[in-house]
């Protein structure tokens, strides 16, 4: 064996070691989250309210808040992202206007989420006087979510063959009808995957929320679903600490004795949720595609 071959072998061995080390780190991370966290997760933990000073608190309200905020943010951002991605992929010509807007979207997607949160604080909490509330949080999450969701939907639309568009136009339909009734349904598997992946990101976001949805989770009356009552779970004007914010909050200034237990349990739930979002994004996308092309 000559020198260069030896050198090659050594280099590749080092690469393997690096990759192995990274795998170890990553495995430790995931293992740590689940091994320390999952034993603390029980049905009671998932459903009971948090306690500020004593042990045995749960994450029920935070979990509900996270889900509620996610749904609201998605409901608001989806039509906007869909419209924007339709324009970008179907109407936009290759000119300065389009490239300016694309740059703007890129800028928005790379903004630190704390900056987005501060903007939400300034606009929704202060200017619009919504206070620390579900609605401030949902609108801020919408801003946080828009660029990535737009990009994901645009990619899904771009994946639809041009033949489909031609088919619609050839029947004397408008471009818009063709897009809404033919291109979007054909892109549905990709759009759904995109929405679910974005959901994972929104679900775990905390920095954008601490000054918008707030850091407190007042008790909710789960018997009252009238959104106009302030202690109703649906009330858009109540403050709503989410799961991710809760983890940050109790670790920064929490004083309950079982703080580590609660946070590790909450972290495990959070990561588990992300894992489910990731897996289901692929699975559901594929299922929808199969359904569309299948016999029934």
């Amino acid at each position: 064996m000559n020198r260069t071959q030896k050198q090659s072998r050594t280099a590749i061995l080092i690469l393997r070691l690096i990759a192995g080390l990274v795998v170890l780190i990553l495995a430790f991370l995931i293992g740590y989250i689940f091994i320390t966290g999952l034993p603390n997760v029980s049905w009671r933990f998932l459903t009971s309210p948090a306690k500020a000073f004593t042990a045995g608190g749960g994450i029920g309200i935070q979990l509900f808040n996270s889900i509620y905020l996610l749904i609201l943010a998605m409901l608001i951002s989806l039509p906007i992202a869909l419209g924007a991605s339709i324009y970008l992929n179907e109407y936009a010509k290759d000119n300065w206007f389009t490239s300016t807007i694309r740059t703007a979207i890129e800028i928005l997607s790379s903004l630190p989420s704390v900056v987005v949160g501060l903007f939400g604080f300034l606009l929704f909490v202060i200017q619009f006087n919504y206070g620390f509330s579900i609605i401030s949080g949902a609108l801020t999450l919408t801003i946080f979510n828009l660029p990535l969701l737009t990009r994901n939907i645009e990619e899904a639309l771009a994946g639809v063959s041009d033949d489909q568009r031609q088919g619609g136009l050839g029947l004397g339909l408008s471009k818009y009808e063709t897009i809404i009734h033919i291109v979007v349904p054909a892109a549905l598997p990709g759009i759904i995957s995109g929405i679910i992946l974005c959901s994972g990101r929104v679900f775990g976001e905390a920095a954008a929320l601490i000054y918008t949805a707030g850091q407190s989770a007042p008790a909710l009356n789960f018997g009252d679903w009238n959104p106009f009552n302030i202690d109703s779970p649906l009330s858009p004007l109540r403050p709503a600490e989410t799961l991710a914010v809760h983890i940050w909050k109790i670790n920064s200034e929490g004083i309950m004795p079982d703080l580590t237990k609660v946070s590790s349990g909450a972290a495990a739930v959070l990561v588990l949720a992300i894992l489910i979002f990731n897996l289901s994004a692929r699975y559901i996308g594929r299922k929808v595609f199969e359904k569309m092309t299948s016999v029934n």
Partner: peptide, 28 residues
């Protein structure tokens, strides 16, 4: 749009929509 309705077009590659056969025909 009225022009294209009266002067129909069929394309090189078959391009059925992601709908049922029935839905493809009744769609427009």
């Amino acid at each position: 749009y009225e022009v294209r309705r009266r002067i129909g077009m069929v394309f090189q590659r078959p391009n059925p929509f992601a709908k049922s056969i029935y839905g493809n025909i009744t769609f427009a």
